[in-house]
């Protein structure tokens, strides 16, 4: 549905040129929810603004709905943009228009008659839970309600694609959840393809099917969300996943953590396990077969894409160093992600 090919966008400001997007390719299949995450300044906004040509890339191709937007005339581009809804961090509602008239705006622009407009807007207000607010003005609404209006407005011209530029970044956690639920809802009900950018891993975790991680204008890692969380490859991805999911180790352990093995020190391991493996009695097997004690320091399970993903930090207490290494080697062979964080005394 969306296919970006070798996009390049460089800003020539006063100082050195800024390579906001350098050679990014990205494909979003129809009906999917695709998230792009990255730190501030990574080029996310520039990338998503290239999808409806609010920003014209210096090079590359922008295919949406089977057409390369860069080859279109101005008039054709305006038509194509009606098939691409967009919502923004700061809502961008017209303050002089009521909720109803804000949602009606794209339809007015398209030249629909008043009766057709009413027929289209009413169900959208119902879908977004705004029926009672139709005659209110944006200044009378909460942030969450404003974003609902923006979503209804983006859906008014019945687009195939919805672009979300940090749609929940100005909202509190609870409102964020309700907006994400609404986006999920319209994705399922209307079969809408959604491309969103965010710097919040929570948004990726609760909403997206696929994810791409951007850093310095390039995509450094991408794939299904489940795999991204379970097996992050790049250092940046690992940092994002850990910051999002794991509770940090207590200071009392961190201060004792040594980086090299030595006599009298036990390895401290992090074990990541996916789906059905959560129930596997791996640790009791480890104890029984290798005669080690597994001292679990922390353990948690997250649901990602309806699948459980577990994290555990444990101290493996063996008789001596070779015994510990044999036990760890066996652990690595299981379908688990095992990472040695360091070594601690008992």
């Amino acid at each position: 549905m969306i296919s970006l090919k070798h996009l390049v966008k460089t800003y020539h400001g006063h100082g050195a040129p800024v390579h906001a997007v350098c050679d990014v390719s990205l494909d979003v299949a129809e009906g999917r929810i695709y998230g792009v995450i990255g730190a501030s300044g990574a080029g996310k906004s520039t990338l998503i603004r290239c999808v409806n040509l609010l920003e014209r890339p210096d090079a590359g191709e922008v295919w949406v709905n089977g057409r390369d937007l860069l080859t279109l005339t101005d008039a054709e581009l305006r038509q194509a943009r009606r098939q691409i809804g967009m919502i923004f961090q700061h809502f961008n509602l017209l303050s002089t228009r009521s909720v109803f008239d804000n949602v009606a705006l794209p339809l007015e622009l398209a030249g629909l008659s008043r009766s057709d407009i009413v027929a289209r807007v009413q169900p959208l207000l119902a879908l977004t839970g705004l029926e009672a607010r139709a005659n209110h003005y944006p200044a009378q609404l909460s942030g969450g309600q404003k974003q609902r209006v923006a979503i209804a407005r983006a859906l008014a011209s019945e687009p195939k694609v919805l672009l979300c530029d940090e749609a929940t970044s100005a909202l509190d956690p609870e409102t964020t959840r309700s907006i994400l639920a609404l986006l999920r809802d319209i994705n399922e009900k209307l079969g809408l393809t959604i491309l969103l950018i965010t710097h919040e891993m929570d948004v990726i975790k609760t909403l997206c099917d696929e994810v791409a991680l951007m850093e310095d204008g390039a995509v450094v890692e991408r794939g299904p969300v489940q795999a991204f969380f379970a097996r992050p490859q790049s250092a940046t991805a690992k940092r994002f996943v850990q910051a999002a999911l794991e509770r940090p180790l207590p200071e009392t352990i961190l201060s004792r953590l040594q980086s090299a093995p030595a006599a009298g020190l036990d390895p401290l391991v992090r074990i990541t396990y996916v789906g059905g493996q959560v129930d596997a009695p791996v640790l009791s097997h480890l104890s029984r077969e290798f005669g080690v004690d597994v001292n679990i320091l922390s353990s948690q399970i997250e649901l990602i894409q309806h699948q459980p993903l577990g994290f555990m930090v444990a101290q493996v207490e063996a008789q001596d160093q070779p015994a510990a290494e044999t036990a760890l080697a066996w652990l690595q062979q299981q379908e688990l992600q095992v990472e040695v964080l360091g070594y601690v005394s008992r």
């Binding site: 967009m86 017209l94 398209a110």
Partner: peptide, 26 residues
């Protein structure tokens, strides 16, 4: 605010529509 103009552009508004329905109205 510039964001309103961008929102209108994203909706496929013509420059004249942006002037009339967004700029002058707001």
């Amino acid at each position: 605010p510039g964001g309103l103009i961008e929102a209108a552009q994203a909706m496929g508004a013509t420059p004249w529509q942006i002037v009339r329905k967004v700029l002058l109205a707001e």
